[in-house]
């Protein structure tokens, strides 16, 4: 990808690259919007960003292309993933619209805006291409640096202030000021004894011999799951797996298969379902 080629028109290679990677970028963008799980959206967005980085390189913005990969895809997207993990990686969003008319309005606006943008670009007279070659003659990074530290130095200083402010802001927002001393383990146990609830340790999660993961609630003697057995964080995220019906359903399936084999088909095959689950 020489500077000479980038100067006037684009090479066939670049055209090929544009059409292939452009398609990937659009698909990635669409997936970002329409994936149910936030973590998938984040990954698709990362893909799109990497494609964009390649395009930056193709347009002669070598510094930006590298920054895009290192800072954007590497740092910012990982920050996103971190927050996604914090909030709950397995939680899937419902894509069902709750605000009446919102989806149609959004699509209408988006479509109209897109049409306008396309019309504007088509309307604009973009005939002469100077090419980036001469500007990059002394090297892209050197050229950027000479601009940043001369003409744009004030804006550059301002972005520095902005970054510091943002860092402080993030700390202020996420830091929780404790208004009282954290209670020690001992105090907590003494409180439990005083109140008379859960004097022994909380029951452990998992259904032995079948599921022993931390997100599976232990079953009580009557077969119902006990919320107490799973961690509070998982409960709040709604990530508790309910396996109480699985054994019974398996048994049912087993019996049905046995009866089919014995050609006694009077009994209708029905899946066992907990009433409260059906109502959800």
């Amino acid at each position: 990808m020489s500077a000479q080629l980038a100067a006037y028109s684009t090479s066939t290679g670049e055209a090929f690259q544009f059409w292939v990677l452009g398609t990937v970028a659009v698909i990635g963008a669409l997936c970002t919007v329409f994936m149910k799980r936030a973590v998938h959206s984040a990954l698709c967005l990362a893909a799109t960003m990497i494609v964009l980085a390649v395009f930056y390189l193709a347009n002669g913005a070598y510094f930006l292309g590298i920054v895009q990969i290192v800072v954007y895809t590497g740092a910012i997207m990982m920050l996103f993933l971190f927050v996604v993990m914090l909030v709950g990686v397995t939680a899937a969003d419902s894509l069902k619209e709750t605000i009446k008319g919102q989806r149609w309005l959004a699509l209408l606006c988006g479509l109209g805006f897109g049409v306008l943008l396309f019309a504007g670009i088509a309307h604009a007279s973009l005939k002469d291409f100077n090419g980036i070659g001469r500007a990059n003659a002394n090297g892209n990074v050197e050229g950027l640096a000479s601009l940043i530290f001369t003409r744009y130095v004030f804006a550059f200083e301002l972005t520095g202030a902005l970054l510091i402010t943002a860092a402080v802001g993030a700390m202020v927002l996420t830091h929780r000021q404790r208004t009282e001393r954290a209670r020690t383990q001992r105090e907590l146990s003494e409180q439990r004894v005083r109140e008379g609830t859960h004097v022994p340790p909380l029951p452990a999660p998992g259904v032995y011999a079948r599921h022993n993961a931390v997100d599976v609630a232990g079953l009580l003697p009557d077969g119902t799951p006990s919320e107490l057995t799973v961690s509070k964080t998982l409960r709040e995220r709604g990530q508790v797996r309910d396996v109480s019906a699985e054994a019974l359903n398996d048994l049912k399936a087993l019996e049905q298969r046995a009866e089919e084999r014995l050609e006694r088909t009077e009994i209708e095959p029905t899946a066992f379902k907990r009433p409260e689950e059906a109502s959800k």
């Binding site: 606006c109 805006f113 897109g114 943008l117």
Partner: peptide, 11 residues
Amino acid sequence: LFTIGATGVLI
């Protein structure tokens, strides 16, 4: 891409 992003914000 901009339009897709904007629509995603709204949806």
